[in-house]
């Protein structure tokens, strides 16, 4: 238990620092790499929670696929230096309001006290295994799963259509 706690706080600290560094860094390439680092720490947190499948998927999909594409676009466009002048004026007050709202909600949920209900139940061997996740995903949550896949398909087709139109105009 204590080792888990030490690990958790160490990882949490790293994750928060990486997240802040991602926002604070002036160079878009560094920002992207800090975000990758953050994803890797979060994946380790999943491992601590006995959710190996989620952890590995987190690394493969977010750190391995999506962020590589981000980095790819940043490097290809050569926009790694942030322009300091072009900020939107109403961004700052809005972000403060939204941030305070989020903090308030988090505090309310935590203080309501029904999340912390003593020690967690013992995990079964099957917990978090690919087979058990697949069973739940394709039985109980089949409709949301299919809707999500259609959404992704539509987004993909949309991206292809948009780039295609530009190419024709370019000719």
């Amino acid at each position: 238990m204590t080792i888990d706690l030490v690990l958790f706080f160490g990882l949490a600290l790293i994750a928060v620092v990486a997240a802040i560094a991602m926002i604070a860094s002036r160079n878009a390439v560094y920002s992207a790499l800090f975000l990758v680092f953050n994803f890797l720490t979060v994946a380790t947190l999943y491992l601590l929670l006995n959710a190996a499948f989620i952890a590995v998927v987190q690394v493969t999909v977010y750190a391995g696929a999506i962020m590589v594409l981000f980095l790819f676009v940043i490097m290809l466009l050569g926009t790694e230096r942030e322009s300091i002048g072009g900020r939107i004026r109403w961004q700052m007050p809005l972000s403060i309001v939204l941030g305070l709202a989020l903090a308030g909600e988090l505090a309310y949920v935590l203080l309501r006290n029904d999340i912390v209900q003593g020690p967690l139940a013992d995990l079964t061997v099957e917990f978090g295994s690919p087979a058990s996740i697949g069973r739940v995903l394709f039985n109980e949550y089949l409709v949301p799963f299919e809707v999500t896949s259609i959404l992704l398909l539509v987004a993909m087709i949309g991206a292809i259509v948009i780039t295609r139109k530009q190419r024709e105009e370019g000719k």
């Binding site: 499948f53 590995v56 998927v57 690394v59 493969t60 750190a63 391995g64 696929a65 590589v68 690919p130």
Partner: peptide, 11 residues
């Protein structure tokens, strides 16, 4: 999946 995850980090 571990193999895939590690090889995707290698990029």
């Amino acid at each position: 999946l571990y193999i895939l995850a590690v090889s995707s980090i290698a990029v």
